[in-house]
Design a protein around this nucleic acid. Structure first.
Length: 574
RNA sequence: GCAUCGAUGGUCUAGUGGUAUGACUUUGGCCUUCCAAGCCAAUAGCCCGGGUUCAAUUCCCGGUCGAUGCACCA
């Protein structure tokens, strides 16, 4: 093994050279935060997404939907992105530097700076000096900088639109239709893979922080009182490193415990969260993230959203960036559905039938509008509604009118007590949300598969991609470009392609060079046609990682390679 | 966004006020019976804009991108 100076540099260099990833729009000078996936990168990303679909759509049964990347304003008012996703900023008139207004105000010990209005912050800053150039600020303009890209819809531009900052909102706004699709039962889940956009102030970590990125999100709607996953047994004994908040605060290492124990001890809030933690771990291993460089870190109370019952990040270790968050798994409770219910006026609930209808006492308050009208005039309707929602006592009830408590005599309303048969209740589901940053995972896979071996004094660069992730599955070489070896090799290439497996024919340069070329792009297998092939119809099959070769008949190739890629067969047993 | 440093073929690099060195890669040819061999040839470059100058890849200013620190973000 050759010591790695800076793996990041080498991985990025290889990515550019061999067509995995490069900066977007280079001929006009690139802008930070945007990348292009080249021919091999796009294919590798697609494979990773397909494996993800295998886990969530095929195995879990959560169907995929596709929503627009542009959303209208009310969506993001409800989601909180209009408010919570923006920072109040200002620019120093002298040094032109931008600052967060509330942070600077805090520097000057102004209380509650983060809750001050734009105007309030402006006034607070007027008498202060710039924290950078030290000159007096004067009346600076405090403006909102929102991390969402905005646009306008239609020729008049009358409707404001935003590029979505996450794919999740599309699933939430479709809740009603999805619920009917799943025939009004809980639990159900829906997934979406797509682009999201955040106008980061200064993205500077290559593929790690992008302004346009691909998310794969699942929104799983569960009954608030039933957070036991029906298939939890699958992962009950699954073990992986969990770094709970107590351990983080006590500066202790992550613990490795079975998921069942993690739930029982309260480390993980419930089976649903635990299930997707384990599933995520399994998924990350499958796509080629290094097992020894994964941990699951629980959000500390101050970084966790106030509504979240529990939240964990799957992190991987990068030699360049340290621990990188790649997946977030949260129990978001009913926060999102409730928020959309409030703004949209839709119910966003599920009617859950009781096993047996229940006979319940029900008290209805009926205001006597005939008496309220003359007394309260135009306010009568409002008063009536408030009476109906109040809690009457024996002599009457109290309501709040114009911030004053008003007593309403018993004569002004009727009470009807009746027995009703209640067949069920409206329940607002809780949402379990695993959210994957596909680009960050792509980088993890590239960095963790990157190896430089020493082969007889020469450096051999090899991407040890799992065969299912590798863009090209098999390379076919004629040993010599003569005596009909090419024809045999081309025939083999075609036969393998017919199986739907991507094979690449290459007869350029010395055989060793061709092996190296394929090693560098992670092609797991290589077939070489030599002179014996002409005699007995066999070829050599070489495995990328071990560089071992075996001989086998040409007609067995497509089937053997298919099994090797799927992991149904080990190379040394082929 | 600010400060410091940097940017030369696909990659790594030499060098310069008068259009650029070498290596690797790639392509074609020769040679070659399994891990970047050899020979011949070809392709290909001074980040962008402005200024100074007869002339700018070189000097100056601004920008973009990258690295580092701050800020921001997770």
């Amino acid at each position: 093994m050759i010591p790695m100076v800076d793996v990041y540099e080498k991985v990025i260099d290889l990515s550019r050279r061999r067509g995995f990833v490069w900066p977007s729009g280079e001929i006009y000078g690139s802008v930070a935060g945007f990348i292009d996936y080249g021919p091999l990168g796009a294919m590798m990303k697609r494979r990773i997404e397909d494996i993800w679909r295998d886990f969530y759509v095929v195995r879990e049964g959560y169907y995929e939907i596709e929503c627009p990347t542009i959303g209208i304003e009310p969506i993001y008012i409800a989601s909180g992105h209009i408010k919570g996703f923006s920072d109040k900023m200002f620019q120093c008139p002298h040094c032109n530097e931008f600052f967060r207004a509330d942070h600077v105000a805090e520097e000057y010990s102004i209380r509650n700076a983060s809750s001050l209005s734009k105007h309030g912050l402006m006034r607070a800053l007027t008498d202060q000096n710039c924290i950078s150039c030290k000159k007096p600020l004067g009346e600076v303009e405090v403006f909102d900088f929102n991390l969402m890209f905005n646009t306008s819809i239609g020729p008049g531009g009358s409707r404001k639109g935003y590029l979505r900052p996450e794919t999740a909102q599309g699933i939430f706004t479709d809740f009603g239709r999805l619920l009917r699709f799943y025939r009004d039962t809980l639990p159900f889940g829906t997934i979406q893979i797509g682009r999201s956009y955040r106008n980061e102030i200064s993205p500077r970590q290559g593929m790690i922080r992008l302004r346009e990125f691909t998310q794969a999100e699942a929104e799983i709607f569960v009954h608030p009182d039933q957070k036991d996953h029906p298939n939890f047994a699958r992962y009950a004994n699954y073990e992986m490193p969990l770094w709970g908040m107590d351990h983080q605060e006590g500066r202790l290492d992550p613990v490795v415990v079975p998921m069942s124990e993690a739930v029982e001890s309260g480390l993980v809030a419930n089976e649903y969260v635990a299930y997707y933690l384990a599933l995520t771990h399994e998924f990350m291993l499958k796509i080629g993230v290094d097992k020894d460089k994964i941990r699951f870190r629980q959000h500390l109370p101050d970084e966790r959203a106030h509504y979240a019952a529990d939240c964990w990040d799957a992190e991987y270790f990068s030699s360049r960036f340290g621990w990188v968050e790649a997946v977030g798994i949260a129990d978001r409770t009913d926060y999102d559905l409730e928020a959309h219910a409030k703004v949209s006026g839709e119910k966003m609930t599920v009617f859950i039938q009781y096993p047996e209808p229940r006979l319940e006492q029900k008290r209805t308050i009926v205001p006597k509008m005939g008496l309220l009208g003359p007394r309260f005039k135009t306010r009568a309707k409002e008063v009536g509604e408030k009476i109906a929602a109040s809690h009457p006592r024996e002599r009457g009830t109290y309501i709040i009118l114009d911030e004053e408590e008003v007593f309403i005599e018993r004569e002004l309303f009727d009470l009807r007590d009746e027995e009703v048969l209640v067949r069920g209740e409206e329940v607002r589901p809780h949402v379990i949300e695993p959210s994957y940053g596909i680009d960050r995972l792509c980088y993890a896979v590239l960095e963790h598969s990157f190896y430089q071996d020493d082969v007889e004094g020469e450096v051999r660069t090899v991407l040890r991609l799992p065969p299912i992730v590798a863009p090209v599955k098999v390379a076919v070489f004629p040993l010599m470009t003569r005596d009909g070896l090419e024809e045999i090799a081309r025939g083999i290439t075609d036969a393998i392609k017919k199986e739907g497996i991507l094979a690449e024919y290459d007869d350029s340069g010395a055989i060793g060079r061709r092996y190296r070329r394929q090693d560098e792009i992670g092609t797991p297998f290589a077939i070489t046609v030599d002179y014996d092939s002409k005699e007995d119809g066999t070829v050599t099959l070489r495995e990328r990682d071990s560089m071992q070769q075996i001989r086998l008949p040409i007609q067995d190739l497509p089937e053997t390679i298919r099994k090797l890629i799927k992991g149904e067969m080990q190379f040394n047993k082929a």
